[in-house]
């Protein structure tokens, strides 16, 4: 696919949209689909650049994925030079960092005109506390309309500038966001006689809660 490297795209997009905070997100899997992370404020301008630039012409937004990352402790092995018994040696140390959780909307962009892609664009929210906001790209690509609605429905990410942000798959009165990693199912459990211990335990707990409630 005759597509410039992601570093080049990043440099040109950064030049075209002053103030945009762009960074490269590495992907370690064998397919090496690296992606561009962009800050929420400049996402629209960067996306517009990607769509309208004559070399890129990413006129087709294939896929919008919502992802939830919880607060996590990341541990990575770092080689550190240390004095061991008076001799300087390289020692592997486990470095632990706290990562604040965030939600993410990932856009897979292709070009139907030039038949290349994907360029992957990520918008990350600063944190997980509601309300989480990102910029809607539906005005640029209609195909994002239902998919952003779905991300809103299942993850609770608000898309600023979306023309019709309603629940799409869950019903209107539904409260929670079921795809979040910390989602807890409501206790509306219906007992069905399967032999699993856990099912029976759950049914028992549910019945006990009902009795207390009544």
């Amino acid at each position: 696919m005759p597509l410039e490297t992601l570093e080049q795209i990043l440099a040109r997009a950064g030049a075209a949209v002053p103030g945009a905070q762009l960074s490269l997100v590495k992907n370690d899997s064998p397919c090496a689909q690296h992606s561009l992370a962009v800050d929420v404020e400049h996402a629209y301008a960067v996306a517009q650049f990607l769509r309208d630039d004559p070399q890129l012409r990413l006129d087709y937004c294939s896929n919008v994925t919502g992802v939830d990352y919880l607060d996590a402790e990341l541990s990575e092995k770092v080689k550190v030079k240390k004095l061991v018994d008076g001799v300087e040696k390289e020692v592997e140390e486990v470095k632990k960092t706290q990562r604040a959780g965030y939600l993410e909307a990932v856009y897979h962009l292709y070009s139907m005109a030039l038949k290349h892609g994907p360029v992957i664009l990520r918008q990350r929210t600063p944190g997980r506390a509601d309300p989480v906001r990102v910029t809607s790209l539906t005005p640029l690509w209609r195909s994002a309309e239902f998919q952003e609605r779905e991300v809103f429905d299942l993850y609770g990410v608000l898309f600023d500038g979306h023309p019709d942000l309603r629940r799409i798959l869950m019903w209107d009165g539904f409260k929670d966001y079921p795809m979040r990693k910390d989602y807890v199912e409501p206790d509306d459990y219906e007992y069905e006689p399967t032999p699993h211990d856990e099912v029976l335990a759950r049914a028992k707990a549910h019945q006990a809660a009902q009795e207390v409630g009544a």
């Binding site: 992907n27 899997s29 294939s62 896929n63 992802v67 990932v106």
Partner: peptide, 24 residues
């Protein structure tokens, strides 16, 4: 157990582009 990473694969299904975006 695939190594950490992500992939987007797509094919021309009879109805259109069917894609799977997986993050491991």
């Amino acid at each position: 157990r695939p190594k950490p990473g992500e992939a987007y694969g797509r094919i021309e299904s009879p109805k259109g582009e069917l894609g799977f975006h997986l993050i491991s």
